[in-house]
Design a protein around this nucleic acid. Structure first.
Lengths: 227, 227
DNA sequence: CCTACCGATCGGTAGG
DNA sequence: CCTACCGATCGGTAGG
């Protein structure tokens, strides 16, 4: 039942990578057989190994594509973005949306961290270090200007924000139910809270009105609403 | 090569669970064969299935033991703790140390979230909901007294802190290298920053001196948290 | 807790 | 990109 039978040149190769992303994210690398992958793509098993040297080679390509896409896309989005939100929220949202667009990206990264700590460490260093330096330099500038808290550890701060992003996106189906009873469908509560924590964790509270007691909607639209 | 040959009654069963924890955490459930597990325990493969009905049954027991231990241990530690740290830092440290004592716990939880979102959701609800309510009620009390920011979403805040804890511990070998160049050996930087972010994300900045410019040690001095 | 054994499936190859 | 096929290993069982 190969519903789609096309013959574009790199088409099958790309479909293999696409289905691998989905299956590796959902079931893990070890939990995904070449047979299951071939079925998903709509080809025979040996065809996978015509396009790639081994199952491992498929994994490597999937991860490299993901990291390259991240590296190319994030700076572009940070430059653009700012759709109605302030600069900081735009930046965090850009990061968040990259993974929200395809939650498999977050799951895949977490799986690689767990499955291959050393190889992943090296890969992340290679692909992400320029981006890390960009962000941390920016934070340090903010510290010198006094807008950013002096006790922020720039690299670690960034790492923790990324952790929240990955965790929030990857565990979306699980954490929804832990929010007392409502499901936080488009996950606005988790997004708002993530941005809020990232913000107050970074910036000096300027002319902050001392909020106390019930949280009046401060425009974040959090609304605990659980009664 | 069965280096250890003991005959305590529940001994083998416990050793199976212990080695399963280690192997499932490191390689995942699908990445761990019964043969590899038997080798690690020092018995023959069928012996595993004398103690447990199936490989799945081993996984279930490992997870249940972990969650039960968490449920029993955390309240106890929250009550005790406070070794030189303020109340809040003690609480976060208690959570952190539970996973730091055995990072496999964090890896296992993350793997279960990825491998079995639905089953894990239900398990977490069952085991953790009382604890979640305890914490979130406490946060809400703080909000009414004005010490806690009104715009904090208690459930989501807790979830995000847990995310940072799990991410920090599970990815320790990976993230060490991303911290520019130093390795943050006992991971004090990551711990301090986590506690700092959790703190400023929760509490109203009281008589906060406007820190600006270079961050002089502001007395967060949470140290390594290990006391 | 062991020996002996099972059918099914694994990643991968030969050869076209 | 396919058919045909490989040895190795998978989770699990029989029977003691």
């Amino acid at each position: 039942m190969a519903a789609t039978k096309s013959s574009q040149p790199g088409d099958v190769r790309q479909r293999i990578l696409g289905e691998s992303t989905r299956l590796f994210a959902a079931r893990g690398f070890e939990g995904t057989s070449l047979q299951a992958l071939a079925d998903a793509v709509g080809v025979r098993k040996p065809s996978l190994l015509y396009h790639f040297d081994s199952k491992e080679a498929i994994r490597d390509q999937v991860i490299d594509d993901l990291l390259n896409h991240f590296r190319d896309e994030i700076p572009r989005r940070l430059a653009a973005a700012q759709g109605g939100l302030d600069r900081f929220a735009s930046a965090v949202s850009a990061l968040l949306e990259f993974f929200r667009e395809d939650p498999d990206r977050a799951r895949l990264v977490l799986r690689e961290v767990l499955d291959q700590p050393e190889a992943t460490q090296e890969r992340l260093l290679t692909h992400l270090q320029p981006w890390v330096h960009l962000v941390t330099d920016y934070i340090r500038m903010g510290q010198q200007s006094g807008r950013v808290r002096g006790d922020v550890d720039p690299e670690v701060y960034l790492m923790q924000v990324v952790m929240m992003v990955l965790g929030t996106v990857a565990s979306a189906p699980v954490t929804g139910a832990l929010l007392d009873r409502d499901e936080d469908p488009g996950m606005p509560r988790r997004i708002d809270e993530l941005i809020r924590m990232a913000r107050v964790g970074l910036f000096v509270d300027r002319d902050e009105e001392k909020r106390s007691g019930t949280g009046t909607g401060t425009g974040t639209g959090t609304g605990t609403g659980t009664g």
